[in-house]
Design a protein around this nucleic acid. Structure first.
Length: 438
RNA sequence: GGAUGGGUGGCUGAGCGGUUGAAAGCACCGGUCUUGAAAACCGGCGGGGCGCAAGCCCUCCUGAGUUCGAAUCUCAGCCCAUCCGCCA
């Protein structure tokens, strides 16, 4: 959520900045709601003050044994009026809240302005894509060509289709192990070299949690939801669990509704989890292979930092992600997403794109975002900066990395003419010494 | 799933329906004392909203209700603890 104070005082500016990310802020509606809110709040508070004063005097009079029937009669109407106005105020407040929860974060001033991904800006490149002296295969062809002992493909999309449906995969044998090795390797690097604390988190979360990081209420259809005793509405909260679309959700919400001690910051945490996305609206895109799955593994990094320290934290986060790619020897580039291409909660996002030989292009493998206080405000995550002075923390998240896509990159970049895959040096220990998958 | 007991400020923990936003202790902050520190003593110390401010309002798990007035009473829900049952 944006700072309601800012939204009140600089509504026009907010609208202009949000427009750069293709979001139209309903200025007129907000203005009139705000005016109404103010008017109603003044009236309720006035009535409440009156009621409090009278009630107090009743108490005092009663204590002295005086007759209070006259005073009590005088406040009879007050309660009724208060109830009415309070109800109106609650309705207006609820309406404002409803809008506020669907307004995306403001893009930082340093973010390139543009309506879509064509306005993204390349920041730097690392590594040189390898020259192949044979026709390159994509990871699907490679994975289906490498067989298990009983001749089944090690990358099996057909079985997954039978078991579940499209956009799922079954991995077997050494490919499955390579996939696991990648995740282990990433976790080890982040915990042992980058200072993150490893976490194991729930894969099913409640609605409040999803609201905290910004997935709800706006992106309902992007998620998979469970159906706990039917879905019942309970004080505005849908009672059900949903599968996490990223570990950012449980990790970031670890600090929801807390007041942190500055000396405990920054908090750097990481987790390897499966991620579940409905991919609503991406029908037909990346239908071949592992690039876009309903279920995929990811190692996620989250940082909780003091306000004012998040920009340096964003740079460190990107470097932590880049380090994995460098250790794996995978060529990549760093992109600054334009205003129109950023996620809902982000003020600035760097994407890491890894070289995919079969597509002759770079594809997203990590997304690192600074959310500033946007998520913290939704979660009520604060830090005690001075005595009695609490400020919202800043939250950042980044993939470190998407494991499935890293597997794709390793398979394709390390393929040999005979269809085998050389195991990157850093992964050999995780593969029990195996140097080649064939 | 069944039974019982609970949810109060950073923590522990009081709180007859009426100056209780909340005793007390710990922690924390400021001061006195001290060469310095500790101890002792004095003072301060939850969160949020509106407002330039004074101040006013909200907030004792959440929501609804009773009442002139609710942390205190009623109902529902959520969560926690313990015991029983079931179970990876």
């Amino acid at each position: 959520m944006l700072d309601p104070k800012y939204l009140r005082t600089d509504l026009e500016e907010a609208a202009a900045r949000l427009a750069t990310r293709n979001y139209t802020l309903d200025v007129e509606t907000l203005k009139s709601l705000e005016n109404r809110r103010k008017e109603l709040q003044i009236r309720t508070q006035d009535l409440q003050a009156k009621r409090n004063a009278v009630s107090k005097s009743i108490g005092e009079a009663k204590k002295k044994g005086e007759d209070v029937s006259a005073i009590m009669a005088s406040v009879g109407e007050l309660g009724k009026e208060l109830d009415e106005i309070k109800a109106q105020q609650d309705a207006v407040l609820a309406e404002i809240e409803k809008i506020a929860l669907t307004v995306p974060n403001l893009p930082d001033q340093s973010v390139p302005v543009g309506k879509d991904d064509t306005f993204n800006v390349e920041v730097r490149r690392w590594g040189t894509p390898r020259e192949f002296d044979f026709p390159v295969k994509d990871h699907v062809a490679l994975g289906e060509g490498i067989k298990t002992a009983n001749a089944g493909p090690q990358l099996d999309f057909d079985k997954a289709r039978d078991i579940t449906g499209a956009r799922f995969v079954v991995m077997k044998s050494q490919i499955a192990r390579l996939h696991r090795a990648l995740a282990q390797f990433m976790l080890d690097v982040h915990t042992q070299e980058h200072g993150y604390t490893e976490c194991y988190v729930p894969y099913l979360v409640n609605s409040k949690t999803l609201q905290g990081t910004g997935q709800l209420p706006k992106f309902e259809e992007d998620l998979f939801h469970t159906n706990l005793d039917g879905t019942c509405e309970l004080d505005g909260q849908t009672k059900r669990y949903s599968l996490i679309p990223t570990a950012e959700v449980p990790l970031t919400n670890l600090v929801a509704n807390t007041v942190l001690d500055p000396k405990d910051l920054p908090i750097k945490i990481t987790a390897h989890t499966p991620c579940f996305r409905s991919e609503a609206g991406s029908a037909g895109r990346d239908t071949r292979g592992l690039i876009r799955m309903h279920q995929f593994d990811k190692v996620e990094m989250v940082q909780i930092v003091e306000p004012g320290k998040s920009w340096e934290a964003l740079e460190s986060l990107v470097h932590d992600a880049e380090d994995i790619l460098q250790k794996l020897g995978l060529p990549y580039r760093v992109i600054t997403l334009s205003t129109g291409d950023m996620g809902f909660s982000s003020a600035k996002t760097y994407d890491l794109e890894v070289w995919i030989p079969a597509q002759n292009t770079y594809r997203e493998i990590s997304s690192c975002s600074n959310c500033l206080d946007f998520q913290a405000r939704r979660m009520q995550a604060r830090v005690k900066v001075a005595k009695g002075k609490n400020e919202l923390v800043h939250t950042l998240n980044g993939s470190g990395l998407a494991v499935g896509r890293t597997l794709v990159a390793v398979m394709e970049n390390y393929q040999q003419a005979d269809g085998s895959i050389t195991v990157p040096d850093v992964l050999v220990p995780y593969m029990n010494g195996l140097t080649s998958i064939r």
